[in-house]
């Protein structure tokens, strides 16, 4: 059933190759902007400050990892605030609710599809970025990062699920979610190290799975091992059940309330 949703979403997305290509272009243009801006500020690609505070001194590598993971991390959220919103408005959502399949399963399938599609896009962006900025990427390095990336995806899915409940209740939360997405860009240390932020921001950032996820992958790329990122790994693994739990409870409540007010996009 989840596979059916994934198949449906893939068909609808990849039906228009032009859209796929334009998504990749948008992704790259956005990335270039940030990397060139960062390098201009730093006066080169290497930064001692960055090295000291994050263990990774090469700015393009630093930014590329952060950026790609950020993009993927907000994907489940977008699936709900835009995808589900659209289906609620049109009425296809109700057609799905009417089926004997579990709504949680259908919604999970939707977020999974968007996550996979964005991961595919970002894999391309990552490859292009790596070639463009001459970043040494090796297969063993990628394989070593894979467990951390998979754990991150699972955490992102749980984090995004919170928005599934919210969108059913409040319908039009896209603009709010967008602000939130950009806030994460700054609060998770995607383009500059968190060390320059005030203490309370650093504490707050620990609640975002993205913060830990970028930290782990960067350390691995800088030559470190999993033993160097023990606390980030623990945080990430702890956030998984936390967000899945909160998301699920919120969703159950939203579902009950929606059955009172109606699924329609009025």
């Amino acid at each position: 059933m989840i596979l059916a949703v994934v198949e449906k979403e893939f068909r609808m997305f990849f039906r228009y190759p032009l859209r796929v290509i334009s998504s990749i272009l948008v992704g790259i243009v956005f990335l270039l902007q940030f990397v060139y801006f960062g390098q201009a500020v730093l006066g080169g690609r290497y930064s001692a400050l960055l090295e000291a505070s994050t263990g990774m001194g090469d700015y393009p590598t630093y930014a590329l990892i952060g950026y790609v993971l950020w993009w993927v991390s907000v994907s489940p959220m977008e699936a709900y605030v835009w995808g589900v919103r659209r289906e609620l408005q049109r009425g296809t959502f109700e057609t799905n609710v009417l089926s004997p399949s579990r709504l949680t399963g259908l919604l999970f399938g939707l977020a999974l599809s968007w996550l996979l599609m964005d991961s595919a896009l970002m894999a391309v962006v990552f490859a292009l970025g790596a070639a463009l900025f001459d970043i040494p990427v090796t297969i063993p390095l990628l394989l070593k990062s894979l467990p951390a990336i998979i754990a991150s995806l699972v955490a992102f899915l749980g984090f995004g699920f919170i928005f599934a409940g919210l969108v059913m209740l409040l319908k039009n939360i896209g603009p709010f979610a967008q602000i939130f997405e950009f806030a994460m860009l700054f609060l998770s240390g995607v383009f500059f190290p968190l060390a320059v932020m005030p203490d309370w921001v650093i504490s707050l950032s620990k609640l975002f799975p993205l913060t830990h996820s970028v930290n782990i992958v960067r350390t691995l790329f800088a030559g470190g091992g999993y033993s160097d990122v023990g606390s980030s790994l623990l945080w990430l693994l702890a956030l998984i059940p936390l967000y899945w739990g909160i998301g699920y409870l919120l969703f159950r409540w939203a579902e009950r309330t929606t059955r009172v007010i109606g699924y329609g996009g009025y």
């Binding site: 596979l3 059916a4 057609t95 089926s99 399949s101």
Partner: peptide, 9 residues
């Protein structure tokens, strides 16, 4: 129809 056949098992 294929999609709905799936979610209707």
């Amino acid at each position: 129809l294929k999609y709905f056949a799936r979610i209707y098992y």
